[in-house]
């Protein structure tokens, strides 16, 4: 039996220890937000955070995340209350078909929450493991720049008008 904390909840998994994390999340835990693109580590669509760090869930047998803390895109905001990063994606057009978006959000979220810089070049570097076939990346970079700045404002002034229910 494998115990994991997923989006703040204790979960257990009793199947094959070599089942991929992405399959356990989607098939066993019903968390369909995480997408599979390539299954080769190239596209980043399957990105989740393990102990706060972005990783490709298509390249991890579930036994290796025993005892860790996992965050998927479901841990961010909801349509009625998007977090600061999701709001920026909406405003800046950072998502089109949406297949890359859950992975893109999780990598970017690790960066934004970790206090990463708002320099576009640094952000492009950080997102290098997330491919997008639609946006041409510029809108995504713009969104992350905005999210980094908005989050700093929120931290300085928690009462600011920017919506921020989930982005502690």
């Amino acid at each position: 039996m494998i115990s994991i904390e997923v989006n703040g909840e204790k979960r257990t998994f009793k199947g094959f220890p070599f089942k991929r994390l992405i399959d356990v999340l989607r098939q066993d835990f019903g968390l369909m937000g995480t997408k599979e693109g390539c299954g080769e580590g190239e596209c980043g669509a399957c990105t989740v955070l393990v102990n706060g760090e972005p990783v490709n869930s298509c390249l991890i047998p579930v036994c290796q995340v025993e005892g860790t803390r996992i965050e998927t895109v479901e841990s961010l905001g909801r349509p009625a209350s998007p977090n600061v990063l999701q709001k920026a994606f909406l405003e800046k057009g950072g998502s089109q078909c949406g297949i890359c978006t859950p992975g893109m959000l999780m990598t970017a979220w690790a960066w934004v929450r970790g206090g990463g810089s708002d320099k576009p070049q640094a952000i492009r570097n950080v997102l290098a493991g997330n491919l997008c076939r639609c946006t041409g990346y510029q809108h995504i970079v713009n969104a992350v720049v905005q999210a980094v700045r908005d989050r700093k404002k929120i931290i300085r002034n928690p009462k600011s008008t920017i919506q921020n229910r989930k982005s502690k």
């Binding site: 580590g41 980043g44 990105t47 393990v50 990783v55 490709n56 690790a110 950080v126 493991g129 997330n130």
Partner: peptide
């Protein structure tokens, strides 16, 4: 080596 995700693993 790869992107951030690959470097983390």
């Amino acid at each position: 080596v790869g992107g951030w995700q690959i470097q983390n693993r």
